[in-house]
Simulated scan of single mutants.
Amino acid sequence: MWLRILGKGRVQQQAIDELEAFPQNNPLRSKAIDLLLNLKTTLEFNQNIDEEDRDLIMRLSPIYEQKLAEVKQEGIQEGIQEGIQEGIQEGIQEGIQAERRNVIENFLRVRFGSLDAELRRITEVLLALSPEEFTPLLLQLSKEELLNRFL
């Protein structure tokens, strides 16, 4: 097929028609179209273009536009998938952060009877620590020691 595409006239037109008739997901179609588009680009930069080459460029232009649309659609789909993945990751992180906040606040309530404004302020600082770091502090330090240490 590739040799017929590189041919001239009717043989070339029939080969391009056959190529266009291949299913979209056919790997031979995709590779041949890539080669055709390279040929189109090469012909466009050639300064001595004859009438047949001009016709070939015109014949390949819709294929080129279709390929651009396919690539654009693939890019959009990839972007959507990446956005979904990032959204999921952010949601997971926010969920983990909210759960850690609940653990710290509940621990402070149980330990000190209530969660006043001062204890709420140190919650933010404690969230920056890992559970391995904040758990011993919450177990061992008094309210005054926690406030002095983190405010």
Rank of each mutant, 00 (worst) to 15 (best):
N106A: 15
A69V: 13
I33G: 00
I122C: 04
G83P: 09
A98M: 08
I80A: 02
F22L: 14
N102Y: 05
T42G: 07
E44Q: 11
G95Q: 05
M58K: 13
P27Q: 14
I92K: 02
A98T: 03
L35C: 05
Q93C: 02
A32Q: 03
Q81Y: 10
Q93V: 00
L28C: 06
R120G: 05
N26C: 03
P27L: 11
L28E: 14
N25Q: 09
G79S: 09
L126Q: 02
T42N: 12
S61E: 11
D55V: 09
E118W: 11
R54D: 13
N48D: 15
L68G: 08
D50S: 10
E52F: 15
A69Q: 13
E99F: 14
G95V: 04
I49Y: 08
I80D: 03
V110N: 15
I96S: 01
E99D: 13
D17A: 14
S30M: 07
L108N: 07
Q77D: 15
K31W: 05
G91C: 03
F107P: 00
R121W: 13
K40I: 05
I122K: 00
D50H: 08
E94G: 01
F107S: 04
L127D: 08
A128C: 06
L119P: 03
L119I: 07
I92Q: 00
G87V: 04
A32G: 00
Q85C: 04
P27V: 13
R29A: 09
E78Y: 14
R59T: 06
I16L: 10
G91Y: 00
Q73Y: 12
I16T: 00
R121C: 03
Q93S: 01
I92T: 02
L119T: 02
R29K: 12
R100Y: 06
D55S: 08
I92L: 07
G83W: 10
